[in-house]
Design a protein around this nucleic acid. Structure first.
Lengths: 210, 210
DNA sequence: GTCTATACAGAGATAGAC
DNA sequence: GTCTATCTCTGTATAGAC
């Protein structure tokens, strides 16, 4: 993963900000240049075209926290923590909303999702499938250990993931209007707590009672 | 709510389709005209500007099924049905994804959400708040009747709503790539069923047992 | 590596004939 | 109400001086 420096970095950051705010098409090279304080044509010393900037952003997305919700931890190493795993994941989502760059990347992703098929492939494979499958593996192991009730683990993963995604979308939207996000930010933790309470196995197994 | 006819209707429908597919900014008046088979300048006999078409679409959104998930039914009239209410709501979400126009409106909404503050106000007030508040009222009444466990009804409404929203987004995305949506479409019902099982009060009240 | 100047294409919108 | 023609503006990108 290559990191940009100097003017190239400024162009990259400014472009990401403007693409996320106004959309790719609505953002002009002149506007990017003006924000940085250089001439429009100077951009072409760093990126060969507007689309090249777009590609660099998509490339960057692949390495962002957005798709590393599990921080490279493997399902078998974490599932035993039960409620703690869920709270952890929810918390990572929450932290993402506080990180300005991740927030911009997420907003960019949502903004361009429906008119960039390359981005849809990325969203599906690296963001959605990857996270849901890891979640699914965690739930499956919890079921085997009789920590939670038995059911379709993939479905359960979707049910756990979707509110987190939605709350993140809400916060990104609220930020776009400079509105307070504190109420929405509490939902991540509440969701993890609520969800665990609903799926955990409550009593010791009945056989032991008789 | 005024309905368009003839050429004006064609312009409206074509514009909605293209805006939803490519975004507002990326869609040109010439492109709209070409799809219909008229000259670009002829559009101006029906809409005074490109932005006027956009406004008409936003206006239309307000009257769409997107925001009438409850089909004008009042909470006090439906809450007694318990599980049935939840299944009903989930089913309306599912039906929306089969309706081409609603699907386009939803895709348009998502596409432009982050670069149109007018649309964000609409999304928040008419789509999100309105639906979540009605849901919240339903859950509150269910709690009073001891049909479901007592907790923050607004939080519960968010938890029920967010997966439905997410699954709808998934389906809209899948459709954008002409992929099968049948697997995702089953999630609506499963969600309602799962959710009800998790919040309903299972046993007869304990006092009656002793 | 940044500047000025400019090429060239495509955008939204208007005028006036039919 | 639609056409052709055209205006004006703004966009991406390039050339060449410094």
């Amino acid at each position: 993963m290559k990191k940009f420096t100097g003017t190239k970095l400024k162009i990259f950051e400014t472009a990401l900000k403007l693409f996320a705010q106004q959309g790719y098409k609505a953002t002009t090279m002149r506007q990017i240049a003006k924000e940085i304080g250089i001439q429009q044509s100077a951009i072409y010393n760093h990126f060969k075209s507007k689309e090249a900037i777009l590609d660099a952003i998509i490339e960057q997305l692949s390495h962002s926290y957005l798709i590393n919700v599990f921080e490279n931890k493997e399902p078998q190493d974490v599932y035993k923590k039960g409620r703690g795993v869920l709270k952890n994941i929810a918390n990572i989502f929450k932290l993402m909303t506080y990180d300005t760059k991740t927030d911009l990347l997420f907003r960019f992703l949502m903004q361009e999702l429906f008119n960039n098929s390359k981005l849809r492939v990325f969203y599906n494979e690296d963001f959605y499938q990857k996270n849901v499958k890891k979640l699914s593996a965690i739930f499956f192991m919890m079921m085997q250990d009789e920590m939670i009730e038995s059911m379709d683990p993939l479905f359960l993963a979707n049910e756990f993931f979707s509110p987190l995604f939605f709350y993140q979308l809400q916060i990104t939207r609220l930020k776009a209007d400079n509105q307070s996000t504190s109420a929405a930010a509490t939902l991540f933790e509440k969701h993890a707590e609520f969800f665990w309470e609903k799926i955990k196995i409550k009593e010791p197994k009945q056989e032991t009672l008789f």
